[in-house]
């Protein structure tokens, strides 16, 4: 009996810390995967393309979330890592005619290194100063990509055009559907790895650094190494997203990677839910569809509508969409218990 009670207490604690998933959470994941698999069968190729972009941005948002939500480091520079990933893919496919799927690990490794190297000097910066340094990174990116001496590779202002891959193995599905499913699988793998990373020893260390860096160090965490590595991992996620985005859009150009992209990823993270893995998916949806909705509401002043929508979101869902869902569920079950 005592052992049984102990097991129960352990189970509750494991669920509370996110080390384990409840039955309900597993069901939620299964439903989400099923919906994800069915969606392209129900909608037009153009919509499928849009949903591919949702997955792409969901990856980028997760990347930023690992850095900001779980490790407490700010970044307004993720457009730079997105660009590095996109150009890595474009250059590999255009110059060396390497197959698109090889560009993902390459973009990931390049961004891991770039992020780690950027993270090293950024160790000295905190809060607003780090925001400023990453802002500098993001505004420096488009001019660098346009730079004459690099234009042999980057295509200068014109950018690089790439061809959309066909479905392999003679599968009778459209290019858009194929790319969607391909991105979907990459997303599942990356989300699974992120969950593993965050629920174990490394994840606890990241969160400990966020909550109290001095105590984290006193507990034996090499905070400098962990923070730089987290920058690298965050950049890796965003870079793979950039590579997939480039393949889906079939085109990269400097002005696709302005500071505004960094802000869009940040907005996706905040509205989706800071420090939440499932919230990052909602972040992707927000990035792709909120501007669309805004434009449908008002062709004349879409950004005014966009701004208003953001304010409303923050007002009604201060913890983001995922926080809103969690709180709603908690309230429901409490009422059911009270009855």
């Amino acid at each position: 009996m005592d052992a049984q009670l102990g097991a129960k207490v352990r189970e509750i604690a494991a669920l509370a810390s996110g080390a384990k998933l409840s039955r309900l959470q597993w069901i939620g994941i299964a439903v989400a995967i099923a919906v994800g698999l069915i969606v392209p069968l129900l909608v037009s190729d153009y919509r499928t393309f849009q949903f591919t972009l949702v997955l792409v941005y969901a990856m980028a948002v997760l990347g930023l979330n690992i850095l900001t939500g779980f490790n407490g480091q700010f970044s307004l520079g993720h457009s730079a890592f997105f660009a590095i990933g996109a150009y890595t893919a474009a250059i590999m496919m255009d110059h060396w005619e390497i197959a698109y799927y090889w560009t993902l690990p390459a973009a990931g490794v390049v961004c891991l290194i770039a992020g780690f190297l950027f993270g090293l000097p950024a160790l000295r910066l905190e809060g607003l100063y780090l925001a400023l340094a990453t802002f500098a990174l993001s505004i420096a990116t488009p001019p660098l990509l346009k730079y004459d001496h690099l234009s042999e590779w980057t295509g200068g202002v014109q950018g690089v055009v790439i061809t959309k891959p066909d479905a392999p193995f003679g599968l009778q599905i459209s290019q858009d559907n194929w790319l969607y499913y391909f991105t979907f699988v990459v997303l599942l793998v990356l989300y699974f790895c992120a969950w593993n990373l965050l629920r174990g020893r490394t994840g606890r260390a990241l969160k400990a650094i966020r909550d109290n860096p001095i105590a984290a160090q006193a507990m034996g965490i090499n905070t400098a190494l962990y923070k730089s590595l987290t920058f690298g991992v965050s950049a890796l996620y965003t870079g793979v997203a950039g590579a997939l985005g480039a393949i889906a859009i079939q085109f990269v150009a400097p002005d696709s990677f302005t500071f505004f992209l960094s802000v869009a990823i940040l907005v996706g993270m905040v509205i989706g839910g800071i420090g939440s893995i499932p919230g990052s998916i909602f972040g992707g949806i927000v990035i792709v569809f909120v501007p669309n909705v805004a434009e449908q509401i008002s062709k004349a002043a879409p950004w005014a509508v966009y701004g208003t929508l953001l304010i409303l979101c923050m007002y009604f869902m201060p913890l983001g969409i995922w926080g809103f869902i969690r709180m709603g569920y908690a309230r429901l079950t409490r009422r059911r218990k009270a009855d």
């Binding site: 509370a16 810390s17 020893r201 260390a205 969160k207 400990a208 109290n212 001095i214 034996g220």
Partner: peptide, 20 residues
């Protein structure tokens, strides 16, 4: 100087960080 958003269990586990 606790890790305020982590659970009590996770705080103690962070304490064991240096053991592996």
């Amino acid at each position: 100087a606790l890790f305020s958003r982590l659970t009590v269990l996770d705080n103690v586990k962070v304490g064991a960080h240096c053991s592996s």
